[in-house]
Protein backbone atom coordinates (compact mmCIF):
# COMPACT_ATOMS: atom_id res chain seq x y z
CA UNK A 1 0.00 0.00 0.00
CA UNK A 2 2.74 2.42 1.08
CA UNK A 3 4.77 1.43 -1.98
CA UNK A 4 1.92 2.07 -4.43
CA UNK A 5 1.21 5.43 -2.73
CA UNK A 6 4.86 6.42 -3.17
CA UNK A 7 4.73 5.43 -6.86
CA UNK A 8 1.53 7.46 -7.30
CA UNK A 9 3.08 10.55 -5.67
CA UNK A 10 6.20 10.16 -7.78
CA UNK A 11 4.14 9.90 -10.97
CA UNK A 12 2.07 12.90 -9.97
CA UNK A 13 5.21 14.96 -9.33
CA UNK A 14 6.79 13.80 -12.58
CA UNK A 15 3.70 14.67 -14.60
CA UNK A 16 3.61 18.15 -13.00
CA UNK A 17 7.27 18.77 -13.80
CA UNK A 18 6.99 17.61 -17.39
CA UNK A 19 3.85 19.68 -17.86
CA UNK A 20 5.72 22.74 -16.59
CA UNK A 21 8.65 21.95 -18.88
CA UNK A 22 6.31 21.51 -21.86
CA UNK A 23 4.63 24.84 -21.14
CA UNK A 24 8.01 26.57 -20.87
CA UNK A 25 9.13 24.91 -24.10
CA UNK A 26 6.01 25.89 -26.03
CA UNK A 27 6.26 29.42 -24.58
CA UNK A 28 9.83 29.65 -25.84
CA UNK A 29 8.68 28.69 -29.36
CA UNK A 30 5.98 31.36 -29.46
CA UNK A 31 6.88 34.54 -31.33
CA UNK A 32 7.52 37.45 -28.97
CA UNK A 33 5.73 40.72 -29.68
CA UNK A 34 6.99 43.76 -27.78
CA UNK A 35 4.56 46.65 -27.46
CA UNK A 36 4.89 50.22 -26.23
CA UNK A 37 1.54 50.80 -24.54
CA UNK A 38 -1.47 49.01 -23.14
CA UNK A 39 -3.90 49.50 -26.08
CA UNK A 40 -1.38 47.80 -28.38
CA UNK A 41 -0.84 45.08 -25.76
CA UNK A 42 -4.58 44.48 -25.66
CA UNK A 43 -4.91 44.40 -29.47
CA UNK A 44 -1.94 42.03 -29.87
CA UNK A 45 -3.09 39.74 -27.08
CA UNK A 46 -6.68 39.66 -28.36
CA UNK A 47 -5.61 38.89 -31.93
CA UNK A 48 -2.68 36.57 -31.16
CA UNK A 49 -4.22 34.85 -28.14
CA UNK A 50 -2.12 31.98 -26.82
CA UNK A 51 -0.22 31.73 -30.09
CA UNK A 52 1.99 34.70 -29.19
CA UNK A 53 3.87 36.03 -26.19
CA UNK A 54 3.18 39.74 -25.80
CA UNK A 55 5.84 41.68 -23.93
CA UNK A 56 4.69 44.93 -22.35
CA UNK A 57 7.20 46.03 -19.70
CA UNK A 58 6.02 47.07 -16.28
CA UNK A 59 6.06 50.86 -16.46
CA UNK A 60 5.40 53.17 -13.57
CA UNK A 61 3.49 56.13 -15.03
CA UNK A 62 2.72 57.07 -18.59
CA UNK A 63 4.41 54.70 -21.10
CA UNK A 64 4.84 57.66 -23.48
CA UNK A 65 7.51 59.05 -21.15
CA UNK A 66 9.14 55.72 -20.31
CA UNK A 67 12.93 55.61 -20.01
CA UNK A 68 14.08 52.01 -20.46
CA UNK A 69 17.31 50.64 -19.09
CA UNK A 70 19.78 48.52 -21.11
CA UNK A 71 18.12 45.25 -20.10
CA UNK A 72 14.69 46.52 -21.13
CA UNK A 73 16.08 47.72 -24.47
CA UNK A 74 17.61 44.28 -24.92
CA UNK A 75 14.16 42.69 -24.41
CA UNK A 76 12.84 44.81 -27.26
CA UNK A 77 15.89 43.99 -29.42
CA UNK A 78 15.22 40.27 -28.98
CA UNK A 79 11.51 40.45 -29.85
CA UNK A 80 10.26 39.08 -33.18
CA UNK A 81 8.03 42.07 -33.70
CA UNK A 82 7.94 45.55 -32.13
CA UNK A 83 4.60 47.30 -32.26
CA UNK A 84 4.97 51.06 -32.00
CA UNK A 85 2.09 53.47 -31.61
CA UNK A 86 3.65 56.12 -33.84
CA UNK A 87 2.58 59.77 -34.01
CA UNK A 88 5.60 60.60 -31.84
CA UNK A 89 4.35 58.47 -28.96
CA UNK A 90 7.46 56.51 -28.10
CA UNK A 91 10.09 59.27 -27.91
CA UNK A 92 12.42 56.88 -26.09
CA UNK A 93 12.83 54.94 -29.34
CA UNK A 94 14.80 57.90 -30.77
CA UNK A 95 17.50 57.24 -28.21
CA UNK A 96 17.81 53.48 -28.30
CA UNK A 97 19.06 50.96 -30.81
CA UNK A 98 16.33 48.73 -32.24
CA UNK A 99 16.14 46.64 -35.43
CA UNK A 100 14.20 48.80 -37.89
CA UNK A 101 12.90 45.76 -39.81
CA UNK A 102 10.98 44.54 -36.77
CA UNK A 103 9.30 47.83 -35.90
CA UNK A 104 5.75 48.30 -37.12
CA UNK A 105 4.35 51.79 -36.76
CA UNK A 106 0.67 51.02 -36.24
CA UNK A 107 -0.55 54.54 -36.97
CA UNK A 108 1.49 55.25 -40.11
CA UNK A 109 -1.51 54.29 -42.25
CA UNK A 110 -3.34 57.44 -41.13
CA UNK A 111 -0.33 59.75 -40.87
CA UNK A 112 -2.28 62.43 -42.71
CA UNK A 113 -4.68 62.52 -39.75
CA UNK A 114 -2.04 63.00 -37.07
CA UNK A 115 -2.61 66.22 -35.17
CA UNK A 116 0.40 68.54 -34.97
CA UNK A 117 1.29 70.27 -31.73
CA UNK A 118 4.16 72.59 -30.82
CA UNK A 119 6.37 71.17 -28.11
CA UNK A 120 8.25 74.28 -27.08
CA UNK A 121 9.82 77.52 -28.08
CA UNK A 122 11.47 77.99 -31.43
CA UNK A 123 15.19 78.30 -30.83
CA UNK A 124 18.37 78.72 -32.80
CA UNK A 125 22.01 78.03 -32.12
CA UNK A 126 25.09 77.51 -34.21
CA UNK A 127 24.74 77.50 -37.96
CA UNK A 128 21.45 75.58 -38.04
CA UNK A 129 19.05 78.48 -37.94
CA UNK A 130 15.77 78.67 -36.10
CA UNK A 131 13.93 75.47 -35.34
CA UNK A 132 11.04 74.41 -33.16
CA UNK A 133 10.61 70.89 -31.87
CA UNK A 134 7.35 70.02 -33.51
CA UNK A 135 5.42 67.06 -32.33
CA UNK A 136 2.13 65.33 -32.81
CA UNK A 137 -0.63 64.39 -30.43
CA UNK A 138 -0.23 60.69 -29.81
CA UNK A 139 -3.23 59.24 -27.96
CA UNK A 140 -4.52 58.08 -31.34
CA UNK A 141 -6.53 55.15 -29.96
CA UNK A 142 -9.06 57.53 -28.35
CA UNK A 143 -10.57 57.88 -31.81
CA UNK A 144 -11.90 54.33 -32.07
CA UNK A 145 -11.74 54.49 -35.86
CA UNK A 146 -8.01 55.02 -35.55
CA UNK A 147 -7.81 52.35 -32.88
CA UNK A 148 -9.43 49.96 -35.39
CA UNK A 149 -6.84 50.96 -38.01
CA UNK A 150 -4.08 50.29 -35.47
CA UNK A 151 -5.65 46.92 -34.69
CA UNK A 152 -5.65 46.14 -38.43
CA UNK A 153 -1.95 47.00 -38.53
CA UNK A 154 -1.39 44.64 -35.58
CA UNK A 155 -3.37 41.91 -37.30
CA UNK A 156 -1.32 42.16 -40.52
CA UNK A 157 1.98 42.09 -38.63
CA UNK A 158 0.94 39.15 -36.43
CA UNK A 159 -0.38 37.25 -39.48
CA UNK A 160 3.09 37.62 -41.00
CA UNK A 161 4.56 35.97 -37.91
CA UNK A 162 2.01 33.14 -37.84
CA UNK A 163 1.26 32.25 -41.45
CA UNK A 164 -0.38 28.93 -40.56
CA UNK A 165 -2.95 30.35 -38.13
CA UNK A 166 -4.97 32.66 -40.37
CA UNK A 167 -8.36 31.21 -39.41
CA UNK A 168 -7.91 31.70 -35.68
CA UNK A 169 -6.28 35.10 -36.07
CA UNK A 170 -9.07 36.23 -38.37
CA UNK A 171 -11.72 35.16 -35.87
CA UNK A 172 -10.00 37.02 -33.03
CA UNK A 173 -9.48 40.09 -35.19
CA UNK A 174 -13.12 40.24 -36.27
CA UNK A 175 -14.16 40.01 -32.62
CA UNK A 176 -11.85 42.92 -31.73
CA UNK A 177 -13.06 45.00 -34.68
CA UNK A 178 -16.65 44.46 -33.54
CA UNK A 179 -15.82 45.66 -30.02
CA UNK A 180 -14.03 48.73 -31.35
CA UNK A 181 -16.90 49.39 -33.77
CA UNK A 182 -19.37 49.30 -30.87
CA UNK A 183 -17.24 51.78 -28.91
CA UNK A 184 -17.13 54.03 -31.97
CA UNK A 185 -20.92 53.95 -32.32
CA UNK A 186 -21.48 54.77 -28.64
CA UNK A 187 -18.93 57.59 -28.73
CA UNK A 188 -20.49 59.03 -31.89
CA UNK A 189 -23.81 59.15 -30.09
CA UNK A 190 -22.18 61.06 -27.24
CA UNK A 191 -20.53 63.40 -29.73
CA UNK A 192 -23.95 64.19 -31.18
CA UNK A 193 -25.39 64.85 -27.72
CA UNK A 194 -22.51 67.14 -26.85
CA UNK A 195 -22.71 69.09 -30.10
CA UNK A 196 -22.19 72.79 -29.49
CA UNK A 197 -21.15 72.27 -25.87
CA UNK A 198 -17.75 73.29 -24.60
CA UNK A 199 -15.75 70.90 -22.41
CA UNK A 200 -12.51 71.25 -20.52
CA UNK A 201 -9.86 68.53 -20.42
CA UNK A 202 -7.48 68.29 -17.48
CA UNK A 203 -4.63 67.40 -19.85
CA UNK A 204 -3.96 67.82 -23.57
CA UNK A 205 -4.37 64.13 -24.38
CA UNK A 206 -7.85 64.07 -25.90
CA UNK A 207 -7.08 65.65 -29.29
CA UNK A 208 -8.20 62.59 -31.28
CA UNK A 209 -11.32 62.12 -29.15
CA UNK A 210 -12.16 65.76 -29.81
CA UNK A 211 -11.56 65.59 -33.55
CA UNK A 212 -13.04 62.13 -34.07
CA UNK A 213 -16.34 62.87 -32.34
CA UNK A 214 -16.74 66.57 -33.00
CA UNK A 215 -16.21 67.71 -29.40
CA UNK A 216 -15.15 71.21 -28.39
CA UNK A 217 -12.34 70.85 -25.87
CA UNK A 218 -10.09 73.30 -24.10
CA UNK A 219 -7.14 71.61 -22.45
CA UNK A 220 -5.37 72.70 -19.28
CA UNK A 221 -2.44 71.10 -17.48
CA UNK A 222 -3.96 69.93 -14.21
CA UNK A 223 -2.93 66.88 -12.27
CA UNK A 224 -5.67 64.87 -10.49
CA UNK A 225 -3.53 64.45 -7.37
CA UNK A 226 -2.18 68.02 -7.17
CA UNK A 227 -4.07 71.07 -5.97
CA UNK A 228 -4.14 73.79 -8.64
CA UNK A 229 -2.75 77.23 -7.79
CA UNK A 230 -5.01 80.29 -7.44
CA UNK A 231 -3.90 81.52 -10.86
CA UNK A 232 -4.89 78.20 -12.40
CA UNK A 233 -8.33 78.43 -10.79
CA UNK A 234 -8.74 82.02 -12.03
CA UNK A 235 -7.87 81.00 -15.58
CA UNK A 236 -10.28 78.07 -15.37
CA UNK A 237 -13.11 80.19 -14.00
CA UNK A 238 -12.58 82.61 -16.86
CA UNK A 239 -12.78 79.79 -19.41
CA UNK A 240 -15.89 78.37 -17.73
CA UNK A 241 -17.59 81.74 -17.83
CA UNK A 242 -16.56 82.54 -21.41
CA UNK A 243 -17.35 79.15 -22.95
CA UNK A 244 -20.19 78.12 -20.62
CA UNK A 245 -18.47 74.88 -19.71
CA UNK A 246 -20.47 72.30 -17.79
CA UNK A 247 -18.22 69.22 -18.00
CA UNK A 248 -14.56 68.68 -17.25
CA UNK A 249 -12.84 65.49 -18.42
CA UNK A 250 -10.14 64.01 -16.20
CA UNK A 251 -7.65 61.23 -16.81
CA UNK A 252 -8.21 60.01 -13.25
CA UNK A 253 -10.43 60.82 -10.30
CA UNK A 254 -9.28 64.24 -8.97
CA UNK A 255 -8.77 65.11 -5.31
CA UNK A 256 -11.96 65.62 -3.32
CA UNK A 257 -11.15 69.31 -2.83
CA UNK A 258 -10.91 69.85 -6.58
CA UNK A 259 -14.15 67.96 -7.17
CA UNK A 260 -16.13 69.98 -4.64
CA UNK A 261 -14.74 73.29 -5.92
CA UNK A 262 -15.63 72.36 -9.51
CA UNK A 263 -19.10 71.30 -8.45
CA UNK A 264 -19.56 74.68 -6.79
CA UNK A 265 -18.71 76.17 -10.18
CA UNK A 266 -21.44 73.93 -11.69
CA UNK A 267 -18.88 71.86 -13.56
CA UNK A 268 -19.48 68.12 -13.63
CA UNK A 269 -16.51 65.76 -13.60
CA UNK A 270 -16.16 62.82 -15.93
CA UNK A 271 -13.17 60.52 -15.69
CA UNK A 272 -12.11 59.41 -19.16
CA UNK A 273 -9.10 57.14 -18.64
CA UNK A 274 -6.93 57.06 -21.82
CA UNK A 275 -5.77 53.66 -20.61
CA UNK A 276 -2.22 54.01 -21.94
CA UNK A 277 -0.97 51.77 -19.15
CA UNK A 278 -2.33 48.49 -17.81
CA UNK A 279 -5.57 49.20 -15.88
CA UNK A 280 -5.88 48.02 -12.29
CA UNK A 281 -8.97 46.08 -13.26
CA UNK A 282 -10.72 45.17 -16.50
CA UNK A 283 -9.34 45.47 -19.98
CA UNK A 284 -9.18 48.10 -22.71
CA UNK A 285 -12.74 47.60 -23.93
CA UNK A 286 -14.14 47.56 -20.39
CA UNK A 287 -12.25 50.74 -19.43
CA UNK A 288 -13.42 52.53 -22.58
CA UNK A 289 -17.00 51.37 -22.05
CA UNK A 290 -16.84 52.68 -18.48
CA UNK A 291 -15.46 56.02 -19.77
CA UNK A 292 -18.31 56.31 -22.26
CA UNK A 293 -20.93 55.30 -19.71
CA UNK A 294 -19.70 57.94 -17.26
CA UNK A 295 -19.86 60.62 -19.93
CA UNK A 296 -23.34 59.46 -21.05
CA UNK A 297 -24.55 59.59 -17.46
CA UNK A 298 -23.35 63.20 -17.09
CA UNK A 299 -25.12 64.21 -20.29
CA UNK A 300 -28.35 62.78 -18.91
CA UNK A 301 -27.77 64.68 -15.66
CA UNK A 302 -27.33 68.01 -17.42
Amino acid sequence: MTKSLAVFIFMLLFSCTSKKENTAESDAKKPVIAVVNYPLFYFAKTIGGDMVKVHFPTIDGDPAYWKPNAKQVNDFQNADLILANGAGYEKWMEKVSLPSSKIVNTSIGFKDRWIEVNEGLAHSHGSEGKHVHQGTAFTTWLDFNMAAAQATSNYKAISGLLPGHSEELNKNFEHLQKDLGDLNKKMKEIGKNLEGQHLIASHPVYQYLEKGYGLKLTSVHWEPNELPTDDMWKDLEKTIAEDKVGIMIWEDEPLGEIRSKLEKLNVLISVFDPCANKPESGDFIEVMNANIERLAKLINLQ
Binding site: L121, A122, H123, S124, H125, G126, K130
Partner: peptide, 11 residues
Protein backbone atom coordinates in the same frame (compact mmCIF):
# COMPACT_ATOMS: atom_id res chain seq x y z
CA UNK B 1 7.96 82.12 -29.28
CA UNK B 2 11.70 82.16 -30.05
CA UNK B 3 15.00 81.79 -28.23
CA UNK B 4 18.26 82.54 -30.03
CA UNK B 5 21.42 81.13 -28.49
CA UNK B 6 25.00 82.14 -29.20
CA UNK B 7 28.10 80.07 -29.88
CA UNK B 8 28.73 79.83 -26.14
CA UNK B 9 25.87 77.33 -25.83
CA UNK B 10 27.54 74.09 -24.81
CA UNK B 11 26.72 71.14 -27.03
Amino acid sequence: STVKAGAKLYI
